[in-house]
Design a protein around this nucleic acid. Sequence first.
DNA 1: GTGGTCTAGACCACC
DNA 2: GTGGTCTAGACCACG
Lengths: 129, 129, 129, 129
Amino acid sequence: MLWFKINYYSGIPVYQQIIAGFEEAVISGKLKADEPIPSIRELGKNLKVNPNTIARAYRDLETSGYVYSRPGIGYFIAAQNKQAIEEKAHYIIKEELTNTILTAKKYNLSSNNIKNIMADVISKVYGGE
Amino acid sequence: MLWFKINYYSGIPVYQQIIAGFEEAVISGKLKADEPIPSIRELGKNLKVNPNTIARAYRDLETSGYVYSRPGIGYFIAAQNKQAIEEKAHYIIKEELTNTILTAKKYNLSSNNIKNIMADVISKVYGGE
Amino acid sequence: MLWFKINYYSGIPVYQQIIAGFEEAVISGKLKADEPIPSIRELGKNLKVNPNTIARAYRDLETSGYVYSRPGIGYFIAAQNKQAIEEKAHYIIKEELTNTILTAKKYNLSSNNIKNIMADVISKVYGGE
Amino acid sequence: MLWFKINYYSGIPVYQQIIAGFEEAVISGKLKADEPIPSIRELGKNLKVNPNTIARAYRDLETSGYVYSRPGIGYFIAAQNKQAIEEKAHYIIKEELTNTILTAKKYNLSSNNIKNIMADVISKVYGGE
DNA sequence: GTGGTCTAGACCACC
DNA sequence: GTGGTCTAGACCACG
């Protein structure tokens, strides 16, 4: 079934959450090139989301090169340049980290304090690997 | 004068930028307890923003406990519980970091890779301090 | 239809009356979790009140956790923690009663006198239940 | 010194708090007929309140018959009808109690529940008398 | 002067 | 259609 969920309370627009779900699946390799993705109506029913919203997400995913459409058939995962993907992942994470560190600084946390939290988090997430 | 500016093109609502400006000033200690802040009309004129917008920002700051109002007199900085702020900050940062690291893992980034990005970001944000 | 009315001459701000109306409905269980409430424009038309005023009431209800919004869809009743509400109610009432009894004592009312007033009031408010 | 304090955070207008302070003192008998009360300027300095605010409070107290003024000399406590005072105290307490019980009912507290809280509060306030 | 409420009407993003 | 932001301008109570 689906590997992502919609959080209706987060304030993040639904179509963006859908986009993020597919981007992540493509970047992580969970979805491979030319693999079909759910039809607009099917996904809409599944996520309890208006089909218009799914359509918009798919359109955006198409223009950013993550999927392609075969009219009358459906949407499929587009082939990805491996290096480009890695760079993209690197970029996204760096952006998110920068934002977090900026908030931390705003809250007067010392860099050492942050490093400690970071080590803690990494060991939990990557623990025993 | 004012220590923050409004970016009218960032897409971030003006009232939120004002809130962020005061939050930071209170947390970092730039503004001290019981210190008066600019009147609604004055700040509105200063930032070229409608007084209603300033009023909303001040109201929100009041409900989150950063300022208090004395009708007919003005708004003032509320006393802060230092320890509570620190704990809250620690918690928020840990939450955000956890989310980022989880996405990083989904993107197949190694923990060493993340650590390098992190060191890079911290040195940029806290550089030369 | 609506279970509360606005008194435009009471001196109590309209948005607070709206808030009180929904708070009561949520706490008493008249409105259940995830149930939609009237749209801002609709309620505004219904109560002959400016949509901005309704919006403010809904926003306040959101920050205090009684409702949540799904932009583009509408506002919905938020799930409530029953026990937390009960404890909060107990605490609030006890506070208010303590204040009143303290003033009564200042006014040299005897405890028996207060008990009589109390019995009178309760029978009026809870009369026949 | 003064038997009441101004709470600047309560949202209750300062002049009303001053009025309440004097009303209470008169009703409880703390201040006797023809006793002088502080001058406007003196009380203003003492409470760190604008003299205009004190003046307004005194004016209101005068029209409601709690004090009288001797121009050029000052304000004095007016003689009170004992029975009228008792009735007034009774009335005020009944009003406050009614409000509290109404809130309690709004919060779905049973009348027995309220009675228990009440007994608790009374025993604490009037305990051992 | 100050804050607080309310109206009227505009524009935008989202569904 | 929905909510969300913002402006302009009015009126009131408080100090």
